[in-house]
Structures are given as C-alpha cells and as structure tokens.
Design a protein around this nucleic acid. Sequence first.
DNA 1: CTGAAAGCGCTTACAG
DNA 2: CTGAAAGCGCTTACAG
Lengths: 349, 349
Amino acid sequence: MNENSNKSIKKEESFLNGKITIADVAEALGVSKTTVSRAISGKGRIGEETKQRVREYIEQYNYKPNHLAKGLAQQKTYNLGWVVPGDCSFSDLPFFQTCLGGIIDYASSVDYDIVVAMGSNQDISQVERLVNNRKVDGIILSRTLENDRVVAYLKQAGIPFIAIGSSQDSSILQVDSDHSNACRELTCILLLRGIRKLGLIGGASNLVVTKSRQKGFVDALAQFRLSPEEDFIALDIDSPLKTEQAVRKMLEKGAECIVCMDDSICTSVIATLRKLKVSVPKDVKVASFYNSVLLENNTPAITSLQFDPKQLGIVACKTLLEKMSGEEVNNKTTLGYDVLLKESTDITQ
Amino acid sequence: MNENSNKSIKKEESFLNGKITIADVAEALGVSKTTVSRAISGKGRIGEETKQRVREYIEQYNYKPNHLAKGLAQQKTYNLGWVVPGDCSFSDLPFFQTCLGGIIDYASSVDYDIVVAMGSNQDISQVERLVNNRKVDGIILSRTLENDRVVAYLKQAGIPFIAIGSSQDSSILQVDSDHSNACRELTCILLLRGIRKLGLIGGASNLVVTKSRQKGFVDALAQFRLSPEEDFIALDIDSPLKTEQAVRKMLEKGAECIVCMDDSICTSVIATLRKLKVSVPKDVKVASFYNSVLLENNTPAITSLQFDPKQLGIVACKTLLEKMSGEEVNNKTTLGYDVLLKESTDITQ
DNA sequence: CTGAAAGCGCTTACAG
DNA sequence: CTGAAAGCGCTTACAG
C-alpha cells in the first residue's frame, strides 16, 4: 500500500517533467516493454492496432525516449563529430559556419547531434578525446591538409569519417566543390576576353584546395597554349603586406588581371589597388572565389566563383551516415559551382 | 571448452581495438567490477594497493570507460549544449568561435563535450531537440536578446543554462564583459580630450548588449552635463547603406567623433569617410569596440575597446558546471575590458 | 576494504 | 502478433 502510493507519486512527478520511461508506458497500457519499443521503432512484427494505441499514448503523455539508454543498447551514440581548425583565419569562418548549418539540419532530421572539436596538425588531442571517450559514431572534417594528422589518426583509429575538401588519398570519403574546374572555367572566360597577363594570388600552399585551384588555373592557360610565369603565381599570401608586395610585382610585370583564391585576399588586393590609384576594371581586372559577404557592396562589383557550403555540409553528413549504415557510397562526391560575371572583369571600358 | 575458446577470441579482439570493459579488467585482476569502478573514479573506500594495481592495468591495456554507460548509470550525458544564432552576422562569427574555443578547452578538462545547435527567436526547434532528447546536461547561450525565446524555453524546461551576455532577468545565470562601463570610459576619455560632438552608431537595438553600450555612452555624456542628441545616436544599422546615411547626417550636424559599436560597422564607417574624403583623425575621430582582425592593418590605427571572448567562454562553462554540481555561484559575472588608444582619436594633429 | 546485486532505460534474439 | 529475459557497460546503496 505504502509502496503503491510512493510509486504513484513518483509517476505523477515523472509526468510533470516528461520523464516517463518505456516501462511506464508499458504498464499503463498493459503491454510489455518489448511491444512499446517495437511500436516506437517500427522494427519487428507488431499489430497495427497495438502500434496505434502505443503511439497515441506516447503522443498524449509526451514520452521522449532516452537516447543514452537507446545508444547503450545499440552501441551507438547518435552523435557525429565536427572538426574545425583551431587555427583558421577569420575569413574562413563563414564557410565553416554555413557548412555546419547544413550538417546540423541533415543530422537532426535523422536524430543525430553534432559534437564539436578543434583540431589541426598542431594539436589533435580533442579529436582523440572524442574517439577515445566514444562520444561519436563518426566524424566530419571541415577541411583537408596535405599531410593531415587528423586524417591519419582517424584512419588508424578505424572510426568512420568524411572530409569536406579533397585528399590525395582516394581511399578516404570526401566531398568537395569542383575547385579545379571552377578555376579553370573562370580563367578560360578571362582568356577568351583577350586578357593574357593573368596573376593568381592564393593562401596556404599546404591546403589541398589551393593546389586544386592552381591546377585549374594552369590548365586553362595550357588550353590557350600559355605557360604560367613565376611572378604571376603567388601562394602562401597570408597578410595584407604580402598581398601588397605580390600585387606590386604583378603590376610591374604588366598584369592585366588578378585572380584571388579567396575573398579575404581579394579584399586586400582591392585595398592595395585603391592605394596605388590603379582603377578596376579599367587598369586591371579582378576576380575572386567565394562571392561572400566580404565582397558584398564593393564598387565595382567583383566577378567571382560561387560554391554552396550548406550543400557541402548536407551531402557530407548524408554520405557519412549512409556509409555508416553499410550502404554503398562513392568515395568522392563533387559538387558544382557558378561563375558570377560582374563589373570587375569588364573589358568594354 | 568451446565456450571458453570463443570467449578468449572475443577478448583478444577487444584488446586490439581498445574496447575492453570494466568486466574484463575485473576478471583479469581477480577483483570485482565494483572495485575497478572505485579505483577509476576514486569514489568509495578502496585499498591503496588495489587501486594502484587497477590503475596500472588500465594504463597498460588502454582501457577507456564507455561514457554512454557511465552516463546512463549516473543520469548524466557529459555533454553541454552551445547555442549560436542561426541568423548572426558575419562579423560576429570570430567572437562566437573564440568563445567556443574557451568553452571546449574548459569542458574537455572535466571530460565534458559540446553539442551545437542553431537557435534564434525565429526558430528554437534545435534547442528543443537537445533538451527533449536529453542529449545535454546544461546549455550555454552565446548571446541574449531582449525577449529571448530560447531563454524563456530553457527556464520553463528547467534545464540548467548560462548566457554569455546580459539579461534583464537577474534570475538567470549570465557572464558578460562590462560593456556599459567600457563604453562609458571610452566616451569619457574622448570627452576629456575636448571632443564634444560625439556620434554613436550601433546594430540591432533588440540586443541587450546594444542597450548597455548606449547606456554607457549616455552616462558619460551626463558626467559632462551633456545630453545625447537624436541624430547622434543611430541604432539598427545593419548595412553599409544605412551606415553611410547615418554618417552623412552626423557629419552635417558637425560630429567630431564617431563611436562604432562593432568593428564591422566601423569598417563601413571608415569606407564611407574615405569615400567622402573626410580624413581620420584630422577631420573626424573614430573609435570602435572589439579590436578584431577586421580593424587590423587599418591606417590610421583605430582606437578600440577590447574584450576577452575566450575568457568569457571559459568562465561561462566553469560557472555553469559549478552551478550544476550544486555549488553556490554568483548569478552574474562581469569581466573587464581594455581601452586601446590609437591614432584614430589623436587630437594633436 | 571488498563484493554481489540491483538498477539506469532502452533493444533484441528467442520462444511461444 | 506478443512477451520474458538477457544484455549494453557502467554506478552505487547495502551487506559483510
């Protein structure tokens, strides 16, 4: 009797803060926990009528499954790790943030959550924690380096992962925009307009993506039987000062157009040109890579490539989850791009 | 016999991928699971020698506890939620990213992980998921709005949380930089230099932080027996166009200095002044708020307030965890600031 | 100081 | 179609 009243008090409390369990539901409905579990998951044979009864009850009493318990029983965490560089530059943040938005959207649609870790070649300890503590079922990398310690670690650890970006290692799952062809097409368009002296300015040369863009640029030149000149390709440009030096040198050598590998660099280039009283597009053309907010409202409007980071996130998340559930997936997925032609590359002036 | 060999095979496999359990350790050492558990956690009475034996074995065989199981037994997830606005502007990202860095650093030092969700007044569904699915033990908010739906929801849900930023609601846990005094001090310094016609340009007026800064500004004026003029305070400035309009109006009215509530706005202000051929600091002074990379390398160097977002993250995480473990904590923690005086407010020219 | 046992809230062969 | 029971890998009163 005493025990009973205790129990009923406990149950009322449970109802108040939504902490009822599968056992409560089973008892209330006079069925077994097994049946309730099956009604919820839809797995296993179960009568249609029973299923409906359970589902209605659950709806009404706002039963929410305990994902920890579910995870323990199934040996899954229902978490995915998201590794962002601890050392990335300011201008990369919007890209990562938008990717993450896509990832969360997709993940939550299948009841997964995202755990974040900072990781770079300098420090992979947070990624190791995630794996060692078994806090995630798989991992999404926000970028790839040429000799990526995180990639090496994850391969060795044997945990499923996918990279946004490209890797030389074709055995790893990866999804990327087609940087190489995007850069090639943009460059070809410029060449078709009669522009010949093309400069290319880019960031860290140990990023795979930098290599891809450079390749596209060189390929385009080759299509026009041109070969790249040394002073016209400046990589590892990571400060306004270096940008200025590179731009000055290109202008001295008679550059007609400067292609910037990201919008941050482009902003520096434009600032330099303004300082040097070089007019765009009259004296020199300018093109960039992301069409991000950084370029917004610039006068003149800047010709730029455009990718879809949110879509990259969605596809990465989806592909990884498919792979984890044993489906056949392509190791490499390549997404498209747009070329946005604007005033900064006009030749009619 | 057969059973035995199976078992030993299974155990060898376990060793290979580090998936040994507390039961394996107990069996190997001829003690009970209880003892192993106690040796690891340090809770409960246990012989020093036994404890050492267990710890050595664990070290040697690389045993890692299963946090899911631990969590289920303790009714904890060892996860904290981190809510970032789904709709924040580009220039806020570095702040959030740096906060997050501090949060992860602190959290991982006590074996917690961070699960991310996007949330704003438009959409709190991801936050609801986190709570309903019991994926987190507590939540850290990256900012506060005046009528914050996320705050309202979390209060009602009864889950522990803390906000980075300030709230009118003094019952909620919060940690913030002292924006009001920072802005007051900066303004006072400018007033002390003899500057009288001070303009203030800020972003979204529904952010608590905007109000605080405005208050500091007005307080400083009051200390000098000045009252704010309407055209000299422009809020809800969220585009370069609006910035330009506000700046033009202030200049018409004879503004001697423009105080910008964030570095993004400051960048627009500087661009406008350049366009209008108004020289800084000769014709008009400029001061800003974050000393972020956005201002780096500007000529002239920009006078700015400086806060410590990483420290905000650390303190927020620490305070929340303390509160969750039942310790007494102050509802509101206020962190300091620095005033960096640079060329853009020089009056000697 | 140590251990057997129950429990956390689910899932899933297995048997009926 | 349904259920009793074992199990996921921990923790923790309780008893000794």
